[in-house]
Design a binder for these strands. Sequence first.
DNA 1: ACGCCTTTGCAACTCGAAGTTGCGAAGCGA
DNA 2: TCGCTTCGCAACTTCGAGTTGCAAAGGCGT
Lengths: 190, 190
Amino acid sequence: MVVNRVLEVTLVELGRVGLERLSVPEVAERAGVNKTSVYRRWPTKQHLVKAALQQSMEATTRPPETGALGSDLASLASSLAEFITSPTGLGIVRTVMADGDSAEAKALTATMWRGPARDLPRAALEQAISRGELKPDTDVELLLFTVAGAIMHRVFIERARVDDAWLKRLVKLLSEGAGKKPGRHHARSM
Amino acid sequence: MVVNRVLEVTLVELGRVGLERLSVPEVAERAGVNKTSVYRRWPTKQHLVKAALQQSMEATTRPPETGALGSDLASLASSLAEFITSPTGLGIVRTVMADGDSAEAKALTATMWRGPARDLPRAALEQAISRGELKPDTDVELLLFTVAGAIMHRVFIERARVDDAWLKRLVKLLSEGAGKKPGRHHARSM
DNA sequence: ACGCCTTTGCAACTCGAAGTTGCGAAGCGA
DNA sequence: TCGCTTCGCAACTTCGAGTTGCAAAGGCGT
């Protein structure tokens, strides 16, 4: 089918040139398809991008990816990093962040974070809590988002590689914290 | 002068509609200026945006803003949040992240993170270390970037408010860590 | 094989926004 | 007043997005 090839190319293009410079005719050409065929299914660039992102979310969150983690913080961060740096992830993040129109973007974001994509990492962290690796009162969602945010900053702002060494530092910071606790009287967690 | 008004409007527009939908003629109209006057100074949209971002960086990093912090983690996070959620910050982040062309974007990012914008928070954190509020071996840059990344995720992905309550949770996570070991033996996270 | 329906390719078209140009009118310092 | 620069204005060119009509496949049941 033409559909899959076009959507796949769309994702790659999103990650490559961003939403701004994404051209429907060019996507068609790279997919080896006439632009008319693309326009008939997806009237505008926005529709095409939306479809591409939605399919990729369904495709990548069903099986493993974000979910195939050993369920400690390190492997969770690793999985998240792998997802964000994938063509799909690059396209999604770039697109969602670039679009100031909150209506579309917010709906898309909501779609993204429903289902396995949200529940699996969450469950993994809660499992880590019950295994005693994390504090019982850990703010799971915040921790998850902070990892994602740090990776995003690394990729999009610093434009540096997300390698194991860096991930290790990130995990260390998030698990141990930066505050100087040892040897102080300190208002312990409630 | 016309210049200042145009660049200011450009920043606001960047934060409002993003780079994708930013229109030079519309910027001109909102600034109460003829589009020809804009085009004469800045040949293309890219030039205009670049100029607007550069000026705003110079304007916002000289005096207080990111630097006017009481120098502990909480006020640093607060300052960073204020900057990122400002029209300027929104415009910068959106633009830099949306542009897949690494040449332009990377140069811009490099420009942004040079000078006071980079040094002041860094100095603040190191000061906090010497005051004994943070661990001596704290990864200052990583901590700084993680705070920024978390805020970005909050603003652009979750699209939720960055208020004091949330900032407090973030600071708590980053200073105490999520790992279950109150300062006992050393770094052995994985 | 036949007809039927849908999908695709192709080329020519419309349309609107981006960016250009020439000229005339202000502004402003000497 | 002169001379230089900057701005407004309107008409223009250009280019890419999206459209349309038609013909050529392709799939599918009979």
